[in-house]
Design a protein around this nucleic acid. Structure first.
Lengths: 225, 225
DNA sequence: TGCTGTTGACACAAAGTTGTAACAATCTAC
DNA sequence: GTAGATTGTTACAACTTTGTGTCAACAGCA
């Protein structure tokens, strides 16, 4: 199993390489975006670890380029971002990374992600994962939501919020929890912000929005009508 | 939930302990590496906060020792480092810390990290816990109560009161006890307030409300009809 | 550059919840 | 049986919590 690590912090790159080698991986390290991209196209690894901020060429660009070429389009990519960086657009939707990690992270954590991704990608047909919930249908892969087969346009935040609610259907989730899961644990957004987005979601979902129930004094839950 | 804080700055340690206690944690503070290590092995907490620079034994050594022993190997560790100790971050992960925080940090930040880690590590099976009691069915996760499969809408206080009663079925519970368990230690509500809420509960529960029995001169209990 | 859409915050309105007090009903001990 | 204690019930005003419209900041984009 071959892995390419594109990361300009040399210490971190070597640490990761070291730990992955211990697990039996063949590792290739690149310290900037351009050479990283070249190594990937040359080596065609099983997975790529890609820092977002890189000299020469940013992680996003590398990612886009890899996705564009058919031969590299399906190589799983794990993005690595520093704490403050905008990760939203990176994940899945826009650029096409398969997962991401926020620095600092442990090698153990990285290994878990890698394993999770490999498990996912080696499945014969990573079939469409749809969540159906009454008239509501969520296609996480395609970032597409329909109510009664009619598409609803949601913003990224709204979508993530809906997915998070649908991910634990029926169970109530506190505003804090939602904040963490949707906005990330380094976010310092107000918990009332959740309310605002719930309102927006409810409006956009129309009748299906009634499935989003308020649990007064606690948070929200998604429940069949 | 138990947490061990190993931190030689006494003020900081106490501040953290205080804030964690407010969140319902049982906190144990150790002011040097050696005693900290001993406390962890003795108490087997759910998580460890570990300063890097410590008298007697450094955080790194503590971490390594904990990881070596099977019984403590999987206890999540959050490393705390002073600003200048950047290189040590890498070292921290090498020995297997799960996350780290750079001083100064807020209690809130720490709490978020703790929650994130716990969610990751203890997630395995947050199994559905339903309490059945005759026709009465309580689902704490979903914040849902049914009587004869029909949903009953309860407010948070009513819900907590019912859960508390159901948590010690058949046994009587004094008003003071209920006040503490439902309203919290710091509440200064009148004990008669409990009566009011019992009435409300009985009304909402209909026939099932008769299972809430008055223990004259003492309090209430929940008992099969 | 301006335009467009998204986002988080905030303020006010709306809705729901709560503790208390007052009175009624019930129980208990004598 | 009756007085006193205890509990049930109800109404309500204060208080919390939530809903929602608006706005400024900002990013992406042409």
């Amino acid at each position: 199993m071959k892995i390419v690590i594109i990361e300009d912090e040399k210490d971190l790159a070597e640490l990761l390489a070291f730990n992955l080698q211990k697990e039996g991986w063949q590792t290739i390290v690149a310290l900037d975006g351009k050479s990283g991209y070249e190594r990937v196209t040359a080596e065609l690894p099983d997975i790529v670890i890609l820092d977002l901020m890189l000299p020469e060429m940013s992680g996003i660009e590398v990612c886009k380029l890899l996705r564009k070429q058919e031969i590299t389009a399906n190589i799983p990519i794990i993005m690595v971002t520093a704490k403050g960086e905008e990760i939203d657009r990176v994940v899945g939707f826009e650029v096409g990374a398969d997962d991401y990690l926020v620095k600092p992270f442990s090698s153990r954590e990285l290994l878990l992600r890698i394993k999770a991704i490999l498990r996912r990608s080696t499945l014969p047909i990573p079939e469409e994962k749809q969540i159906r919930f009454g008239q509501l249908c969520i296609d996480e892969q395609r970032h597409k939501v329909t109510v009664n087969e009619e598409e609803i346009m949601l913003t990224l935040t709204e979508f993530k919020l809906l997915v998070t609610l649908a991910g634990r259907p029926g169970r109530m989730q506190s505003r804090e929890r939602l904040l963490q899961d949707v906005w990330g644990y380094s976010s310092d957004a107000d918990t009332r912000t959740v309310d605002t987005h719930i309102t927006r979601l409810r409006n956009k979902l129309g009748a299906a929005g009634e499935m989003i129930r308020t649990v007064r004094g606690y948070g929200y839950k998604l429940e069949l009508a």
